[in-house]
Computed example of a mutant assay.
Amino acid sequence: MSKDTTASNVPVLHTVHQVRLWREQQRAEDKKVGLVATMGALHEGHLSLVQAAAAQCSSVIVSIFVNPTQFAPHEDLDKYPRTLSDDIQKLSKLPVTVFAPSATEMYPRKQSFVEVLGLSEMLEGVTRPHFFRGVATVVSRLFNIIEPNYAFFGQKDIQQCCVLRALIQDMHYNLKMVVVPTVRDSDGLALSSRNVYLTAEQRARAPAFYRGLCRAQKLFDSGVVDRKTLIDAVKDEAAKADLDIEYVCLSNPNDLKEIDTVDSQGAILSGAWRMGTTRLIDNILIGFEF
């Protein structure tokens, strides 16, 4: 175990062996362990997950690991922000332990992977077919290493939540997943580590997508349930800000298949758009809670 010099009160573990010794101590003290899995560059959205974990669990561990297996060769792995010291400083006032492994520690052989078929192959999986295999693989390894009682994920990455819910069920992991609502800036833009890539002009236009989601929510609340009207509400607001929309989908919350009408199961209204070289995603839950 080591302690970062910028925040000496935060224990930082770097190896699987260290984590397992730590986990045995938590078990001996009958503590419930909550995991918050991150890739670092922490913002208020991440901290809301940590706070939710601390409210439910007697011990919280935050993993900080930029996972290479969820990036395609043409994506931004090399430029993805790595700010471990700053991240630990942001966590210094919270009762947490940090797990910050190396790539070699997490992937000693680089030959074993986990896939959740079906759910991983639509929406985000269409343009990023590698992504959810990488997510499922690294989260499976974190579950096996840490053995948490609870795992906390953000609603902003709603398809990831659906994939991981299926993974937990299919692999019989003995833990409960908790989905925490998206944290937003005052203008509605969902917090994301990639927001730092936006120019001032792009940042000013970016919230239009969420305004479209809110407009669709109001339509649903007034009784509108058809796919076209709800999706057009998002596209219309996005067009006003000249957003480069990649997709907008109204999906069944269980299998993520696109639906024509919102029924008693509710729906996920989600989408992705590009601003220059930056790709952003957002969603709302219609008629159900995760």
Rank of each mutant, 00 (worst) to 15 (best):
S102T: 15
R82E: 13
F132E: 11
Q70H: 10
R165F: 00
P129K: 03
A41T: 09
L164G: 05
P73K: 06
I64P: 06
L84E: 15
I158E: 08
D87G: 04
I64C: 03
P73W: 04
D87R: 00
G118W: 08
D87K: 00
A151P: 04
L119Q: 02
G45P: 02
E29R: 14
E147S: 12
F153P: 09
L35I: 06
Q111P: 02
T83I: 01
A41G: 14
H74N: 15
L84V: 15
Q89G: 02
F132P: 13
Q56G: 11
L42H: 00
V98R: 01
K32W: 13
S85T: 14
Q89V: 11
L77M: 03
Q160D: 08
L84Q: 13
V126T: 14
V96F: 03
R141E: 12
L94A: 01
T83Y: 02
A37I: 05
H46M: 06
S140V: 13
D87M: 03
C57V: 11
L164Y: 06
S120D: 07
I64E: 03
V114R: 06
I158F: 14
L77C: 02
S59R: 09
V116G: 10
R23I: 09
D157V: 06
S112L: 13
Y80E: 03
F132Q: 12
T83Q: 09
E44G: 13
V138N: 08
V98I: 09
K156H: 11
H46F: 04
I88R: 05
A41W: 08
K93Y: 07
D30M: 11
R27H: 11
G40K: 05
A52G: 09
Q159L: 11
T104F: 08
T83C: 01
A41Q: 10
S140R: 09
L91Y: 08
N67W: 11
V36A: 07
E121S: 13
Q26V: 07
Q155C: 10
I146S: 07
Q26P: 04
F153S: 10
G154P: 02
N144Y: 06
D78M: 13
V138G: 07
H43W: 05
R27S: 13
I158T: 12
T38E: 00
Q70T: 10
C57S: 14
F143N: 08
V126Q: 14
V116W: 07
A37Y: 01
V66R: 12
E105F: 00
R128E: 07
D87F: 00
L119Y: 03
C57W: 10
L119H: 05
H130I: 08
S112W: 01
L42D: 01
G34E: 06
T127P: 02
Q51D: 14
I158K: 06
E24V: 00
V60P: 00
C162I: 11
P95A: 09
K90V: 05
M106Y: 01
